[in-house]
Design a protein around this nucleic acid. Structure first.
Lengths: 115, 115
DNA sequence: CTTGACCCTGACAGCGCTGTCAGACCTTAC
DNA sequence: GTAAGGTCTGACAGCGCTGTCAGGGTCAAG
């Protein structure tokens, strides 16, 4: 599929899809005329990037993860320090969740103190 | 207290404390020689800013919240649309928590699939 | 009075991310 | 063949946040 369609299907802007490629997270085929040609695997990848990204992960971090994550099952063999990255990222995520929960408590408290 | 001490006590860099002031989130007293002089209320505010900020809130958003949040108990009277902001922010936070949980599941799954 | 630690302001720069614009090419449908 | 809409590249700019540097003032201890 072409970039516009992928954009519509994933909700990621055309601009960002090209950016992902520039950062090395995607490498779509090209048609003879130079148009990007994405497959379903690319679409899957974009969805993953989106989720990981909205969790606060940097594209750089996601990039380290992604190549090992083809096929829903990570392949760790080519990725030596990946486990470390993963554990570290889970730690970061837990921290963020904690902060968010705290904030939520604060805000929800404010709201209910008014109703 | 002076800015260096506040920085040490809160873990927020001197640079950022001055930035907060520039953005209108803090307004410390000044000594006759121009040094910033922070009180305990400022320290409290900085801690709140820190928590709210690490929850992904913009300083601009925090700024709208902060004036109504003196004394641990929000004063809604001067803040008409605050409830709307609060509800909206809680929604955003819930979204972020959801995304983080998803990411966490993905990553933790990867890790356990290897042990 | 000097020295070292701290503070001041202002500016520049970078980060990661995102939008937008220009100028050109491609494709599809009429 | 023409027009409309999609795509290409490359560049510029902005966002919010953060560090750093320069050039200068202040303060406390020796």
């Amino acid at each position: 599929m072409k970039i516009g369609e992928l954009s519509r299907r994933t909700g990621v802007s055309v601009r960002m899809l090209r950016y992902y490629e520039g950062e090395g997270l995607l490498a779509p085929q090209r048609t003879s005329s130079g148009y990007r040609d994405y497959g379903t695997a690319d679409e899957e990848a974009v969805r993953r990037i989106k989720v990981l990204g909205s969790a606060g992960m940097t594209l750089e971090t996601i990039k380290q993860l992604l190549p090992c994550v083809r096929n829903n099952r990570p392949d760790f063999r080519p990725c030596d320090n990946l486990r470390r990255i993963l554990a570290q990222q889970v730690g970061l995520i837990d921290q963020r969740i904690e902060a968010l929960s705290q904030s939520r408590t604060i805000l929800a408290g404010f709201i209910s103190s008014v109703n």
